[in-house]
Design a protein around this nucleic acid. Structure first.
Length: 564
RNA sequence: GCGCUUGUAGCUCAGUGGAUAGAGCGUUUGGUUGCGGUCCAAAAGGUCGCAGGUCCGAUUCCUGCCAAGCGCACCA
């Protein structure tokens, strides 16, 4: 067995990544990873280092621009295996890497290999962005896979509150990003218009002894449906009125808030009562589970063996009195999603529902779903006023609604504010600071950047300046380089968000890009008739930044104003 | 008691198995007679909850503990 054979053999993992999934996404980084892997093989073949199995080598964006664009810690990882010091190994590798096109390679203590792109490699992104426009960053990663993205699904028992806002904006933005990278997405809202909460709503409308919901909207429902107190109403009557009230809440509160306040458009509203229960989905789900031997009877009830799939305990589908549990209905709803051809499921839930995660996963598997199923949990929004927590309760009628929030701070601020934080953050929303915050919110910073970019382009057009044949080699200023760097990372960012659900990285990106733009603007004059060529190059850069910033804001769902 | 999430600057929050841990707000100090000052530059401010472990290297991974939020029904 020759050294050469070994070197080739050991780099087989690289062959997969070169031609597979990650090549499209990682692009240039993957090419370097492949080259470095080859070099290690060559060094082994030449007898300069011993033969060993090469672990995965990663090339990453540097955190600090002074270290160039890309860096690898390969030498640090491999030094021990190579029986040499990281610095020596780094020098060996970089000696062979230095001839690689498009970058200057340097070694830095304690053993990093840094790669600095040439000016051409760096600025070529400007032309790419301009030619692709808003399509820059589009991807075929999803390959048309159908995704069912369910979010909000607030009960139709009252107006939506702040927590619904967080999940709503999140789900909406996630759908946008998934579509951008090639998925076919259905944004779906599940309407819980059957079961116990409808009865509770009915009682509340009658204001009888079992009333649980309060607040002005109950009065509005009574007025709209012409209903007064009916203390002696029977269950059928309560259900009838509750059902009507739920339909009213859905149309008059929830859908109107979605359209006019939240600017979210759903592709489908699925009614628990009409679409799921009346179509017999729960019954069929139960039959399927029985057929598979996953359901069993005990103590007169029918159970699903969810513990087979990692749940803490088994769950009841049919109670000993013969009625189905809410979990059975959920199984029916899952079956409907599966039968509608969803290859991938996404569900966003509030932290108060995190206990359902394992049983829902178990149910999906029990029904034969084998695709990817992401369940995102968003932590509670804590409302603070004057330094003190405000307890919200739909039942007590003291919730802060989305309508109120949007009326107070505006849609863009509300949306950006929710989306810029990770879902895992236990969010403090200070109502007392809401108005003041609206003046200091980063969304204005970002929108101002977009308005400034638009203004520059307008002025340039008035001055008769163009950038049609701009010479990008004139973009030599460090601030220009930094902007190109951000533009280059945008496609990877879209993929990362779609893959991991980390939507909050988009607002952060928008802030970072705006930051660099403002800084560039302070140092570099764009419109300068004394230097028309440099002007043209910078106008091209400005145009590219505007395209990417506008696209980022579109994904987030925030407007990109031309003027403010 | 068990489970999930969180603990990073005065406050609200990013971030990471590596090179000096970041941003906004607040505080302090400069800049701009402007291609939009809703801007830019700089300073101050940190035991990355505590303690062990793995590693060449841990704020990041593992374990335990402390604290906070949320869950733990033949309810929905």
């Amino acid at each position: 067995m020759t050294f050469e054979y070994y070197g080739t053999f050991l780099c087989i993992w690289q062959v997969f990544t070169m031609f597979g999934f990650s090549r499209r996404i990682r692009g240039m980084k993957t090419q370097w990873e492949g080259r470095i892997c080859e070099i290690v093989g060559e060094l082994q073949a030449e007898g300069l280092i011993p033969v060993f199995v090469v672990p995965e080598i990663l090339v990453e964006w540097t955190r600090d621009e002074r270290h160039g664009e890309y860096a690898t810690n390969a030498a640090l990882v491999l030094a021990k295996l190579a029986h040499t010091s990281p610095m020596e190994l780094a020098n060996l590798i970089s000696g062979k890497l230095s001839s690689f096109e498009g970058a200057v390679v340097e070694v830095a203590a304690p053993g990093y290999i840094n790669m600095t792109l040439t000016l051409d490699a760096m600025t070529s992104v400007v032309g790419e962005v301009i030619s692709r426009g808003g399509g820059y960053g589009d991807n075929t990663l999803g390959n048309g896979t159908t995704v069912n993205n369910e979010f909000i699904s607030a009960n139709p028992t009252g107006p939506m509150h702040l927590g619904n806002g967080r999940g709503g904006f999140y789900g909406d933005a996630l759908s946008n990003v998934l579509r951008k990278v090639g998925f076919t997405v259905t944004s779906e809202y599940y309407v819980n218009d059957a079961g116990e909460q409808v009865m509770k709503l009915g009682h509340s409308v009658f204001r009888d002894g079992e009333s649980v919901y309060a607040g002005g909207y109950i009065e509005e429902i009574r007025e709209a449906l012409s209903i007064g107190d009916e203390p002696d109403a029977d269950d059928a009557r309560v259900r009838e009125v509750g059902t009507k009230a739920a339909a009213f809440v859905l149309e008059e509160y929830i859908k109107k808030t979605l359209d006019s306040k939240m600017k979210i458009s759903f592709d489908s509203f699925i009614s628990e009562r009409k679409d799921i229960v009346e179509n017999g989905f729960p019954d069929r789900a139960i039959l399927t589970m029985k057929d598979k031997g996953l359901a069993f009877e005990q103590d007169g009830a029918l159970w699903l063996r969810t513990t087979d799939f990692g749940d803490d305990k088994d769950r009841v589908l049919v109670k000993s009195d013969g009625t189905q549990t809410y979990f059975a209905t959920d199984c029916g709803y899952l079956l409907s999603k599966i039968e509608r051809g969803s290859s991938r499921l996404i569900l966003t839930l509030g932290a108060d529902h995190h206990g359902y995660v394992s049983r829902i996963r178990a149910a999906a598997k029990s029904l034969g779903f084998t695709g990817r199923f992401d369940i995102f949990i968003l932590q509670m929004v804590r409302l603070v006023k004057d330094g003190q927590e405000v307890r919200m309760s739909k039942r007590a009628g003291n919730v802060v609604t989305i309508d109120e929030l949007v009326e107070l701070v505006g849609h863009d601020v509300a949306r950006f504010f929710f989306l810029m934080l990770s879902l895992d953050t236990h969010m403090n929303f200070d109502l007392g600071l809401a108005e003041e915050r609206s003046e200091k919110n980063p969304v204005y910073y970002v929108q101002y950047a977009h308005a400034r970019l638009s203004s520059i382009l307008r002025k340039a057009e008035e001055a008769g300046l163009t950038y049609d044949n701009a010479d990008m080699s004139l973009l030599t200023h460090p601030k220009e380089r930094g902007l190109c760097r951000e533009l280059m990372s945008f496609p990877e960012l879209c993929v990362e968000v779609a893959e991991t659900g980390s939507v909050h990285k988009l607002p952060q990106y928008a802030i970072r890009l705006s930051d660099r733009l403002h800084s560039f603007y302070a140092d570099c004059r764009v419109i300068d008739s004394e230097h028309p060529e440099l002007s043209g190059s910078r106008l091209a850069l400005v145009s590219a930044i505007r395209i990417v910033l506008a696209e980022t804001l579109r994904l987030i769902g925030v407007s990109a104003p031309e003027k403010m």
